[in-house]
């Protein structure tokens, strides 16, 4: 709207304001050809440039995040995402990237958009979500991605780098629930959250290998994201929101 809110001004954006006659110097991409046909003169679409912040979130809610020692990792991840959206100002837009889609699709802003983004659901696919984030978000978007990153492809580093160039990116890596020590010993039955089963003997030797492996994996992933230009943090099962705050160097008064 002309002379509207201080967070909007005329320019490049996506919120339509009005049509007016074409003035030399207008961006030809803004010519509304339907209106031009109706009026017989070139018409230019005037839109608001959005100066509000877009807070985008990628939340891995696949079955692999449903595991945990005392509760599913996904619970902690949702807490972190809630905190992420809670910082949105009324003019800010909150979106979730879920596979090929952005949610919400309407022009909601502030708390309503945060609630809609939090409640959004759909089929999650990591690689697709990262691709969608690259192509559909505005430059300067603050992007938070939370997951265990088991599905992160080996060749995804370039994409991570591109995302970090366009957006302010933060990755929260869900820490393995048994990071501090594997819970079971003896003959162990394991069910893969995303399929598969394993029945094997786990002794001290295996427990030691496990501890080394999860620590190595976490360190490698954090390094990959950091090298690509992402802010990184570790999502702990018991400290959802606090884990996000810690990634930004903030200490929450009350953990969780």
């Amino acid at each position: 709207m002309p002379g509207g809110s201080p967070t909007s001004r005329r320019g490049d954006g996506y919120e339509f304001v009005e049509l007016r006659g074409y003035v030399p110097g207008d961006d030809v991409r803004r010519i509304d050809w339907a209106a031009t046909a109706r009026s017989g003169e070139l018409q230019t679409r005037i839109v608001l440039e959005d100066v509000g912040l877009t807070l985008a979130g990628i939340l891995d809610d696949s079955p692999s995040m449903q595991v945990g020692r005392r509760r599913p990792l996904l619970g902690a991840a949702r807490e972190a995402l809630r905190l992420w959206y809670e910082v949105a100002e009324p003019e800010d837009r909150c979106v979730r990237v879920i596979g090929k889609a952005l949610a919400p699709t309407s022009g909601l802003r502030g708390a309503p958009s945060a609630a809609a983004a939090l409640g959004a659901g759909g089929s999650f696919e990591l690689q697709q979500s990262l691709e969608t984030a690259r192509s559909a978000l505005r430059a300067g978007t603050a992007l938070l991605a939370i997951g265990d990153w088991f599905d992160l492809r080996d060749d995804a580093d370039e994409l991570l780098y591109v995302l970090a160039r366009r957006y302010d990116c933060t990755a929260l890596l869900a820490r393995d629930p048994w990071f501090d020590g594997f819970a079971l010993s003896g003959i162990v039955r394991m069910r893969g959250a995303e399929g598969g089963t394993l029945r094997a003997y786990v002794g001290k030797q295996e427990q030691a290998r496990y501890e080394q492996a999860v620590r190595r994996r976490e360190a490698q992933l954090l390094r990959r994201f950091a090298l690509a230009g992402w802010r990184t943090g570790v999502l702990e099962e018991s400290r959802g929101a606090a884990s996000l705050a810690a990634a930004f160097g903030v200490r929450l008064a009350k953990a969780g």
Binding site: S64, D148, F150, M190, G192, G196, L198, R199, Y201, E206
Partner: peptide, 17 residues
């Protein structure tokens, strides 16, 4: 034990099946 990735566990730990 429900675990995120059996493939990761099996490859990393090489438990005695």
């Amino acid at each position: 034990l429900a675990y995120s990735s059996i493939a990761f566990f099996a490859a990393a730990v090489q438990p005695r099946r």
